[in-house]
Nucleic acid binder design. Structure first.
Lengths: 187, 187
DNA sequence: TATGGTGATGACACGACGTGTCATCACAGG
DNA sequence: CCTGTGATGACACGTCGTGTCATCACCATA
């Protein structure tokens, strides 16, 4: 038997999610989490930068994934088509299969200002990745920033709607509708 | 003579800004700030919700101002025209006269992740105010959310560009350019 | 003039977060 | 068998932010 039970990170994450669901985010202390996971407080902060990060561990690689997608797309691809295609992949691989978890997280975030700020930061990181992706493709900086912010707006507005929609609604379809709405609004 | 020197809030704000400029945000403690202002730590937190808020005190009333403007605009106004006109007012009254302060704040925010999160939260609050303004005018929820997010994107992308532009460039002109760029990018 | 209310501040304790640092010790590789 | 490595424990510590009670100039009113 090894010195410690394996999967410390996963145990911490599970304990944290359980406790947040039971008593809320703010009311849960890090020592409580680590006690349930059978570890020490210090170890929690070796795996997660802070208490909020544990809620976003599953999304850590998404920006890099987006960057890769953008780098590998054919040079001829139009920015808007690139966005739509990218959002489709992210929607299908990262969001559609996790609706319940995303709903639970949204509920938690709603209750805590600090979590809202962290949520916004994650969006900003995503926007930054997209912006860099466009700039690497030769799009000029101002346009790249604008396209990136707009992409993030598209996914977030659509995501919010999808989370409240019946289960048979596809996120990708909502994204397309949202894009159409945006176009008509700027008409 | 009154029991305490007046303007406690302003003194705290000034002391904080000075110290942040001298030693950075993270390296400055709240007791340092209050010592310089001649007050106690507890008093700081009576005037500002947390250490970061002191940097945003001057913008506290902006969302309410936007809400008022939107409520008072003639019912016939088109959403897009409303946005442009609103951004013009905000640009001229709240941003143009404060370029130096805004540059200094941006520099501080750049150095601290926590400040970045707070900055994003302020944008989200603004977006929320705009969204509610549109909904109160009868715009349907999805469209209102989209218009609000897009408005905030417009002002932020434009603001970033304006802060780096020569002093004779007008923020409002940059906003118009940004809007044109956005239209063409979605075209 | 007296009196009682009010509102801003001080003083103090405290819990929680997050970090620095050193010790421990199973495990892998030579 | 030996040695380095990497994950964890143990512990101290600084900072943030809140709860609570005391203080006391100022003000309104009788």
């Amino acid at each position: 038997m090894s010195r410690w039970r394996p999967d410390a990170r996963e145990r911490l994450q599970q304990a944290a999610l359980d406790l947040f669901a039971e008593q809320g985010f703010a009311a849960t202390t890090v020592p409580e989490i680590t006690a349930r996971a059978g570890l020490t407080t210090r170890t929690f902060f070796r795996h997660f930068a802070d208490k909020r990060e544990v809620l976003y561990a599953d999304d850590a690689e998404v920006p890099a994934m987006v960057a890769t997608m953008m780098a590998e797309a054919p040079p001829s691809a139009e920015p808007l088509a690139l966005i739509v295609e990218g959002l489709r992949t992210v929607a299908e691989t990262r969001f559609e299969p996790r609706k319940a978890a995303l709903l639970a997280r949204r509920e938690l975030v709603r209750t805590d200002a600090g979590l809202q700020e962290r949520d916004l930061r994650k969006r900003a990181v995503m926007s930054e990745a997209i912006r860099e992706g466009f700039q690497a493709r030769g799009v000029d900086p101002a346009r790249a920033a604008l396209l990136a912010e707009t992409s993030v707006t598209l996914i977030n507005v659509s995501l919010a709607e999808w989370l409240d929609a019946p289960d048979d609604r596809k996120l990708y379809d909502i994204i397309l509708e949202t894009l159409a709405t945006l176009r008509s609004a700027l008409g």
